Each structure stands twice: as structure tokens, then as C-alpha cells.
Amino acid sequence: MKSSGIHKITSLLVLIFLSFSCSSDLDFDQIDDLKLEPVVVANLTYFNIPANDFIDNGNEQNIAFDAQDFNPFRNSLMREDLIKAEFNFEITNTINRAYKIDLVLIDAQNNTIETLSFDAPANSGNSNVLNFTEVFENQRLANLKRTVKIGFVLTMAAGPPLTENSVGNLKLRSDATLYFVIED
């Protein structure tokens, strides 16, 4: 009996306490001050070329070129709200030849906007993993937003001859870290 009386008194005190709680008017105009700053990581490009792909009819091909469509900037979010982009590259060369890798940013008129160059030393038996980061902000970002294609130019340096039986690969993996500011 005493416990039910204590229970009733406790319940009454809780109700009294809750009736004196603070409240404020809701300000739905705060939505006008909305500012989102998301960061997105996405794959950019990838290739894995075996050493014997640099041989054509028994002859070494010192230069290779490939262009791909690249137009994420047709999306208004990418054009208007992107404030910074970081391209991260990981290059692994297990071929016994050095390479220069040029990533060419190309506009709608097939003009080169910018060329990013990376050196991949010949395989030395050690870990040949190289990491590079390119940051695009301000005018450089504005130029990047004009890109509609990316091209790769691979140039093989002098060294031991490659054959159809040559081993190893030239790999490139990359991603983009994109920084946005979205305001209403």
C-alpha cells in the first residue's frame, strides 16, 4: 500500500515538472539558411596494361594513346556547387621499363585544357607503387569543369627490349574526392 502511494506521488511530481518545461516557437525560416557541405569519393579511372600489349607485330610501341568520354559536369550540381576536387592516383609498374603517363584533359573543341604528367620508374624488384594527388580549386577547377574527355598518353623510356613474352604490368588506379557547398 505504501508503494502505491509513493508511485502516485512520484507520478504527480513528474506531471507537475513536465508542465513547467520550457518551449519556444519553431522558426521554419531557418531552412533559408541551409548550408550543406558534403564530401564525395568516386572512382575516376583505371587501367592495367600487360607488358606484351606494348608489342605490335614484334615491334615495341613506344607511345600509346586512348581517350575516353568524361563529362560529369553536365550535371548542374557538379557545375554550380563543386568547390574543390582532388584527384588521387596510384601507379604500379612491374615492367622492366620506365614510363611517362600523361593524363590529358580535353574540352568540347578537342583542345587540351591541361596535362597531368607522372613518371613510373622501371621495376626494380621492390614495391613500385607511387601515389600522386592533384588539387583543383579556383581557376584550375573552372578549367576542369570544361573537360569532356580525358586522354592517356603512355610513353615508354629506353631500356631492355620488350617481347611477346615480357612479364609485368603498368597499372593506374584513381579516385576523385569532391567537395561541395550547397546553399539555399
Rank of each mutant, 00 (worst) to 15 (best):
S11V: 00
T112N: 13
L44G: 10
T92L: 07
I16N: 15
D66A: 14
T10P: 00
N169T: 12
K145E: 13
A142L: 11
I9F: 10
V181A: 12
S127A: 10
K149F: 13
T10Y: 07
V148F: 02
H7D: 14
L18I: 06
R140I: 01
L141Q: 04
A51G: 15
T10L: 08
F152M: 10
P38D: 06
E60I: 02
T177D: 05
F89A: 09
N43H: 11
P50W: 04
I91S: 04
H7E: 14
D25S: 02
I31E: 08
G58F: 09
A67Q: 11
D56R: 07
L44K: 06
D69G: 09
K84P: 01
S3V: 02
E80D: 15
C22R: 07
S19R: 09
D56H: 05
G58H: 05
N71I: 03
F54P: 08
N131C: 00
N43S: 14
Y179E: 02
L144E: 05
S174V: 02
F118L: 14
T112A: 11
F73W: 03
L130N: 14
Y179K: 02
D33H: 10
N126C: 04
V167R: 10
L26E: 14
L116H: 06
V40E: 07
Q68A: 07
S166H: 01
A157D: 15
T163P: 04
K171V: 06
F180T: 00
S4V: 11
L82G: 00
E80I: 10
D81V: 02
T163L: 04
F89V: 03
E80N: 15
F180R: 01
A42P: 00
T115I: 08
V135Y: 00
D81N: 13
E90Q: 14
F17R: 08
T155C: 07
L154I: 05
D119F: 09
K145T: 09
E37W: 01
F65K: 09
F136C: 01
N75P: 02
N123M: 03
D27N: 15
C22G: 13
I6A: 09
R97L: 05
N123P: 01
E114Y: 00
L82V: 01
V39M: 09
D184L: 12
D119K: 11
Q109E: 15
F54H: 12
D27L: 07
I83K: 00
Q109I: 07
N143E: 14
D32P: 00
L105P: 05
T163Y: 06
A64V: 06
F87S: 04
K145I: 06
N62E: 13
V153D: 11
G151I: 04
C22E: 11
I91W: 03
F73A: 01
I16T: 15
L105A: 09
D184G: 05
